[in-house]
Nucleic acid binder design. Structure first.
Lengths: 261, 261
DNA sequence: CGTTGTGTTGATATTAATCAACAAGTGTGG
DNA sequence: CCACACTTGTTGATTAATATCAACACAACG
């Protein structure tokens, strides 16, 4: 069978998740991710309620903690690290639908079963909520339900933007969009240090970028190389990219550039 | 400039929407769309509250009633007809992100401005809510907020499925997926009449299908022709397709088929 | 009855995928 | 410490799926 689309690649075997039930009542108070996450709608005096509902879990790099098609019993909140979210076709073709960084609430795209898989790109910490405990929490804190709706709305906006990218942008436009999106990601640029102002970190491999943008690793590599020769970017180290000409990349990402192809 | 991707096509000019403020207090009671929409969480005795918040509007075929980038002041609920939702690139390339049929709530993918445009495919009726009135309604009926979160979750699942389609499926797989999705749409098949059991109606043009699936009209047309010669479908009339071999199409849609290309 | 919009089909062009080779970095174990 | 396997990334040659360009059929419509 000659596949025209991206060939199947071996997928990391799902391994059991390491659970470390550190439910200290004050865990949420000192949580550095709170300011970025939906938890911030819960007033400080009620954080013990939140802490009681959450189980804090370590996830090793490369481990899956959500698997497409399995019963959706838990919701997660990322407190450290980053995960890739993806869907698979029967023959192994993969589409990464997003990356979940600190503060991301996971499980919105859920019916009875998970619609996607999640795998840690680096060592992670996540808070796990059972469906019933989250439901109870939402009933007690309507502001959190409202906040989740906001989050879901934002994700829908992002999903539609990604559909536009996947359906209608050229390879170069996709890479440019990806770089600009990463550069815009709060906290990704070390903006405090001017010399690093436009250096973005990429915790994912070329294969991940390819599967996120609907391309092959070769096309991703070639596009980045060409951006480099064109002076649009520099690659100071593996997993790092310096944006040298943000305006040009932004234009290209918007599909405004005539030499986009 | 030689565009590699789908060339720009003329876009229907936005024209003002026809407003017909039929706010009869009992409009919601007799609304045929209620059973399909988020409104169904509001108890019958409170329907006058709902009716007071909604303005019923007729939209002519071809008219836009939501425009990408404009301030998102209103939310809509489709009570009759169907709309296409889309995003545009600067040079006119278009991605249709979805079709909104009866019962669809529009405006979830919203920040301060609309993230997409909506244009009627056929004469429509929609209920329009101002942001403030919807907010008041949600505050009074928390079940509706909960219901909206469910709806948003389902849309996210659908969006991820569409990303998989756009990023990783072949042209034939995309068309097959589209046909099966349409056939699965509740109320689209005249299932009551056995001889029409597998006939689906398509209110959109080939151009719309192409822009929804990230293809060109020619590729859509050719794929359908080939399905026809392969006996998978029949085209009894314009805007109608009979599914002759649903199993084969379902397999192809899942990417399981070796001759997918 | 011409005009316009929609859809089909054919010929050709082009982007990005595929196939292939290799370099650099990482970890393992002898 | 080094041979070895393995992963990741880059680059080149070629192929193939789909876009583009073009012509035409047909229906709706003024």
């Amino acid at each position: 069978m000659t596949l025209t689309r991206t060939a199947a690649r071996p997928v990391a075997q799902p391994r059991p998740v390491v659970i470390e039930p550190s439910r200290a009542a004050d865990q949420c108070i000192h949580c550095g991710a709170r300011q970025y996450s939906v938890c911030n709608v819960i007033p400080a005096r009620d954080l013990d309620r939140l802490a009681a509902a959450a189980v804090n879990i370590n996830v090793e790099s490369g481990r899956s903690f959500i698997r497409e098609g399995e019963p959706a019993e838990h919701f997660f909140n990322v407190t450290a690290g980053c995960a890739k979210l993806f869907k698979l076709l029967a023959d192994g073709r993969r589409q990464i639908t997003g990356f979940a960084g600190v503060g991301t609430f996971l499980g919105l795209a859920v019916s009875a079963t998970y619609a996607f898989s999640a795998e840690a790109l680096e060592p992670m910490r996540v808070c796990r909520f059972s469906r019933s405990k989250l439901r109870a929490l939402l009933d007690d804190f309507p502001a959190m339900e409202q906040r989740l709706l906001e989050v879901a709305s934002n994700e829908l906006v992002a999903a539609q933007e990604q559909m536009l990218l996947l359906g209608r942008k050229t390879a170069r436009e996709r890479i440019a969009s990806f770089l600009i999106a990463r550069a815009t990601l709060p906290g990704n640029c070390l903006a405090s240090e001017p010399q690093f102002a436009e250096i973005i970190t990429l915790p994912m491999t070329r294969a991940d970028i390819a599967d996120y943008l609907g391309l092959t690793i070769e096309t991703v590599s070639r596009s980045l190389t060409r951006f480099k020769t064109e002076g649009l970017i520099e690659i100071p180290a593996a997993g790092e990219i310096r944006i040298c000409n943000r305006a040009a990349l932004t234009q290209m990402a918007a599909g405004t550039d005539a030499h986009a192809a």
